[in-house]
Design a protein around this nucleic acid. Structure first.
Length: 429
RNA sequence: GUGAUUGUAGCUCAGUUGGUUAGAGCGCUGGUUUGUGGCACCAGAGGUCGCCGGUUCGAGUCCGGUCUUUCACCCCA
């Protein structure tokens, strides 16, 4: 007999966890629907050709590949083996597990472009798989919870994303959070202004670590990546800047004045904040963080990230705008904007802050406890009535002593029991 | 992918410089209690010490490999 075990980086979700996860997902999907987003599901597996090349070389390595069925070696020649794994792979695996929800979404949009009503707003809650090395809060199978709008450049989308995030956090009773906003064009502008035009992706990767490793270390990394002394000096006032949204916008207007694209970013940010005000959203939790970069290279406009301080848990939500979502599938120039909630991390945050409501745990309202066959028969006759009244009820299925039945109720967390003895039956209760 | 780290009963962990039948607490099962569980007391079950190999008269203890856990890097949710 073998000991059962789980593949590395995967988890079971027991009843208690499922109830709490369902609470989170109910809250999120309710909000998505309220904003006009519609559900989409795509297959767990995609053609490998759909997935490869979309996430960079490292991403390709993190894809789970599915071995072809049957004689998976039939197309492989000895010469292929000699050429290495890269040559053999396409001949033994033509499918892979999805790595995120964005690429399958783009594939879906392209395949259905004639049927969809644009701007198309969809949400999608499904697991994704990455052959990463697991760590705390990082798994090989985890859920993403995406909402995207494709087919419009309107900044209303950005505003609505901010409003949805605020609504979800309010519903979940998370009071203290930071919704960080920035714009990729601002970052491009910064690269231009400090004389490092075109090196913004390297700039982003380094700057993104500011919170984690501090300004000193970021400067070292920038130096390693070929940023000059002057560039780093020019960056310093920006790093040092603090202030509210209005002050930061004013600061950026002068700092980025030499950069056309940078000023475009500032203008977009101004519009978003202005629309937000008109919408009536509270400025609560919103931070304009010019150092927010996010690692992803495909964002071209707004960038979002949400953190809950003092929990030791990384960002729980993030997203941004991309100009060309569907270009890789041959349909150029379709803009989109979207974001994602990290369900697993949100779960951890609620756990740490003890914000799960008691009723999140789904358990029967009553257990019917019987002493003998007569009580069991009577209990059986009550079951359907009580259930018809909308109560979750169960009857202990075996004849056994009360101690065991009550212990079952205790362990399962059933708060109320009905004892069915001769006296109760006689009294009609 | 790089560098560390962990693994003993269902759970949390002891286990002395390698030396007889590997322990504790909690949990579990039964009983004290043929109508009131959570407390108490009594009894009991449960481990080829992650797995494979090596050193040794002898390995839970030392060595190698492998898997697993956790952590940092890379990257990311």
């Amino acid at each position: 007999m073998q000991k059962p075990s789980l593949p590395k980086g995967t988890r079971d979700f027991g009843p208690a966890q499922m109830a709490k996860r369902a609470y989170i997902l109910r809250t999120i999907t309710k909000t998505f629907k309220k904003f006009g987003f519609q559900a989409l599901e795509t297959p767990a597996m995609e053609n490998l050709s759909t997935l490869t090349g979309k996430y960079g070389d490292e991403g390709d390595q993190l894809l789970f590949k599915i071995l072809n069925s049957g004689d998976f070696l039939k197309q492989v020649e000895a010469s292929d083996l000699a050429e290495g794994p890269g040559h053999v792979l396409p001949k033994v695996a033509e499918k892979g597990l999805r790595y995120d929800l964005t690429v399958p979404f783009a594939r879906y949009v392209v395949m259905n472009r004639n049927e969809l009503a644009f701007p198309f707003k969809r949400y999608q809650v499904q697991p994704v798989w990455r052959a990463d090395r697991p760590q705390r809060g990082r798994y090989r199978e985890f859920y993403q919870c995406d909402a995207d709008v494709v087919g419009t450049e309107s900044l209303l989308c950005e505003v609505e994303i901010i409003a949805m995030i605020q609504e979800v956090f309010a519903e979940l009773k998370i009071e203290n959070y930071q919704l960080k906003i920035n714009n990729r064009k601002v970052l491009t502008g910064i690269a231009e202004v400090i004389g490092a035009a075109g090196k913004e992706s390297a700039l982003c990767v380094a700057i993104d670590k500011l919170d984690k490793i501090g300004w000193e270390k970021v400067q070292e990394e920038l130096a390693e990546r070929g940023f000059s002394e002057e560039a780093r000096t020019a960056l310093a006032p920006l790093v040092a800047h603090t202030g509210d949204v209005a002050e930061t916008l004013t600061f950026l207007s002068s700092y980025l004045a030499p950069s056309t694209i940078g000023m475009e970013g500032v203008a977009e940010l101004r519009t978003v904040f202005s629309l937000l005000q008109t919408y009536g959203a509270s400025p609560k939790g919103i931070v304009l963080d010019v150092m927010l970069a996010r690692g992803l290279s495909y964002y071209t406009g707004a960038i979002f990230e949400v953190q809950v301080p003092d929990t030791g848990i990384g960002s729980v939500s993030g997203g941004g705008r991309y100009d060309n979502l569907t270009g890789v599938f041959g349909w150029e120039g379709v803009p989109g904007v979207g974001f994602s909630f990290g369900v697993d991390r949100l779960y951890d945050v609620l756990e740490v802050l003890q914000l799960f409501p008691e009723e999140a745990v789904e358990v029967s309202d009553y257990l019917l406890v019987h002493f003998d066959a007569k009580g069991f028969q009577y209990g059986l006759s009550l079951l359907a009535q009580l259930r018809a009244a909308g109560l979750a009820v169960e009857l202990y299925p075996e004849p056994t002593k009360m101690k065991k039945q009550l212990a079952y109720a205790t362990k399962k967390g059933i708060r109320r029991v009905l004892l069915l003895g001769d006296d109760e039956i006689a009294a009609g209760r």
